[in-house]
Design a protein around this nucleic acid. Structure first.
Lengths: 123, 123
DNA sequence: GAAAGCACTTTCCTTTAGGAAACTACCAAG
DNA sequence: CTTGGTAGTTTCCTAAAGGAAAGTGCTTTC
């Protein structure tokens, strides 16, 4: 009898797998978490503000990632009619629900780093 | 006066940003979450088991990702001296601490999908 | 002794991600 | 009328990610 059956192929697992893929495709890339995290901290930031806040990002990436996040309704973009035109980026109500996810990820990273120092693993 | 200062450049934020980068570099790629999730569910799986469990992954990727995870002490690899040689992959104690992270990500993904159906956003 | 299962590795290829630099366009201050 | 700030877009390039297929080596079953 060939092993072709799949063990953890329950509907629950399938849904979870799908959900993980969904989340990670929305938050993929080097910068999305940083952008969202920054917007959760300081609400209402301009393009150049974000460029300064997020160390290392360039204009192309910032622009592209903001568009992605806006399309997925995680970030609001509001053009202000100020003297020199400004744009206000802010997190949406829905985007703010990512806070627990980001917290878990950040906390795990902090704990992981500590665990490396705890063992003789750091090098 | 030039704007050169950075607002969210507090030590706390820097640490969090660092931690997020750490976590995401360890868990980067298309498959790591799926592998870890699968190993948390069904502990002790062989290479071919994982290949069957994780829909779409190929041998090259599975092999490479398992090596990465092993290097980071999230997964154990144990060669059994059975008749046809088998290998048992299992999650480490430390790898298991990723469960809350994965749960948050999965739950957010599920909620996100629901929110798309709730609005007139689905297309 | 051929087929098939286990556990991979290697090669070759395409796609995607991401960065640097230049450019557009508009406005204000000096 | 030049500098500097706003908010981007476009082009060009490299590096990394990832998939398909074939190959390796060993063992057991038919």
């Amino acid at each position: 009898m060939k092993k072709k059956a799949i063990i953890n192929d329950t509907p629950v697992c399938q849904t979870r797998m799908q959900a993980i893929s969904d989340t990670m495709s929305i938050l993929s890339g080097k910068w999305k978490f940083h952008i969202i995290g920054t917007l959760i901290e300081g609400n209402k930031l301009g393009f150049m503000d974000l460029l300064r806040e997020i160390d290392g990002i360039g204009t192309k990436m910032l622009s592209k990632e903001l568009q992605d996040l806006e399309m997925n309704h995680l970030v609001n973009r509001k053009v202000m009619d100020t003297k020199p035109i400004t744009v206000q980026y802010s997190i949406t109500e829905y985007g703010a629900t990512l806070a627990p996810v980001i917290n878990e990820i950040a906390n795990w990273g902090i704990a992981y780093r500590k665990s490396l120092f705890g063992s003789n693993e750091n090098k």
